[in-house]
Design a binder for these strands. Sequence first.
DNA 1: ATCTTTATTGGTAACGTTGTCATTTAAATT
DNA 2: AATTTAAATGACAACGTTACCAATAAAGAT
Lengths: 337, 337
Amino acid sequence: MDNGERKPTLKDVAALSGVSVISASRVMRGAPNISAKLREKVERAAQTVGYQRNRIAGSLRGQTTELIAVIVPSMSNHVFPQIVDGIDDALKGSQLRLVLGMSKYDEAGEAAILRDMLTWNPAGVILSGLEHSDETKTALAHFTGPIVEVMDSDGDAIDMSVGVSMDEAGKLIARHLVDQGYTRIAYVGAWGERPKRSLKRRLAFEAELARLGHPIITSVILDEASSLASGAAGIEMLFAKDLDLDAVFFANDDLALGALFYCQARSIAVPGDIALAGYNGLEMCQSITPRLTTISTPRFEMGRLAGQLIRARIDGADIATRQQMRLELELVAGETT
Amino acid sequence: MDNGERKPTLKDVAALSGVSVISASRVMRGAPNISAKLREKVERAAQTVGYQRNRIAGSLRGQTTELIAVIVPSMSNHVFPQIVDGIDDALKGSQLRLVLGMSKYDEAGEAAILRDMLTWNPAGVILSGLEHSDETKTALAHFTGPIVEVMDSDGDAIDMSVGVSMDEAGKLIARHLVDQGYTRIAYVGAWGERPKRSLKRRLAFEAELARLGHPIITSVILDEASSLASGAAGIEMLFAKDLDLDAVFFANDDLALGALFYCQARSIAVPGDIALAGYNGLEMCQSITPRLTTISTPRFEMGRLAGQLIRARIDGADIATRQQMRLELELVAGETT
DNA sequence: ATCTTTATTGGTAACGTTGTCATTTAAATT
DNA sequence: AATTTAAATGACAACGTTACCAATAAAGAT
């Protein structure tokens, strides 16, 4: 595969087509004011020598890349892949590329990855959530490109943000459960409440329950990561406490589904014996019987908007539209509550 | 946040610490043979001016980046995110970064993204599957770094590969169903059998069924993407044909689960009325009741190995170990067959 | 036919780093 | 103490592109 020779450069293309290097450059990157004749000559020469642009060189000269740094907690999760998919969708058709890093829900990890990514001079940065370590903020202090924080809308963005309200989510579910007549309500979280937005959601949930006169009976926060298995473990733990609960809200659908399957396997009636609700609105929730009550979050859409904001600022560069977008949540009442 | 000044460079660090630029460079990238004194001076100066490496410049000079181009079909899928997670895991601790692209299951799209990515001079490339358009192969013809194709092991790799055998998967399920006494067996695929490896799996499945004396009754290939909903649509379509089937193998777990939920919602007994089997071994399969029979694929592990191969070749550069790794599949017999 | 304006092309330098080779300094050997 | 070897530092050039400005050619205006 390797013919041993070095890659053809603009110089080679220029030489072959008998034009200057700078003209070849202009043709290759589609700059304006190029005659058809010249364009054709250069394109043929490029074809012949097998020229490939060198974005590294271009980026050095131009002092900016077309790379977007994206840092998410993890990909083993149903949420972030869809965010990334949305970002990619928004970037389609541009020359922008995603550089991906995973923080594993660790704030120090996020800062380290971010610092590394900034050495590539990205054109923009996308982070998840609004809570970041001081290190992260310091690293971004001298970054001049657009920054979008995605997921959460309750708080101040470093630059721009696209998210949903954790506060609203907690309240929505609390009201729904009380409306349905449940009074002895519990909560199950996981992974030590990382990221922090799950904590915000829980606090809003608990506050609203209290306000409605049915304060939370107990909240269990597991150490393990969210999974179907830990959801099952969570509800088992609650049952063991013998608290006569009638409803449980879980930090996410994975946990809630795990609990639902746990109940189904043991013939515990849902919602007869216990009502269950989750958060995220995974496709799964609407396909199973009974359908899981949950809050549907616009994951793909958040990613897409984040990508669009970044792109708009890079392209148009027109205004430093420092904005925070809050998207709507939807309570999807299933048959588990 | 933007203080208006340009970013500090090695020149600034060198000036402040009173050493040469090249010495500052050596300290910053941890080159050998540096006196403690010099190192300390430089590091303090770097700290003071807030120096950040510029990998773009370094990459131009060194004619190589530390970027790994990864192209997968999509992220709205349970398979590829885990592959990516595995790759990231393997790259952890190195300076290598993932640049991600999505082909949307389109071969022309793959080639276009790949060409674009190659303009960034990546150190390595990871693709999914072994089937690629000529354009893709042409684009890679002059690429000198390591290339790993992940997912599939039935066929020739461009360079290296890590995958499982589609042929074996098809046979495993065929034998299992026949062993269990099923004789009137059907298949449901989706998304027009993209990527091609699902086709390979089906053909092996059909061939093995025929060999065992119970040729496939019918194979339905849906146009829509795989999802729980399309799985339900698939089995509904089969029932409508009134073929007196006793088992169905689905192209993946999403489809199979969709079919299972469809049956559960309609009190169709599984496996009494119809047996169902999927492919991938998602966590979900083992949590529901009845547990879904499926073939478990080592997704994270495939990604991890792909990352390790790339990393080994880049680091050690030691041998052009042109290898193809085939990982084991495991039939997970659940209660749906 | 001459003068402007605009479209098209070219030349030079610079982006920030590091490979290569040269030089100086320190350590080891005779 | 003189010589050899190794360690530490430095100078220079080059990686391939494009921003900036200058020059030329074409088109339009008078």
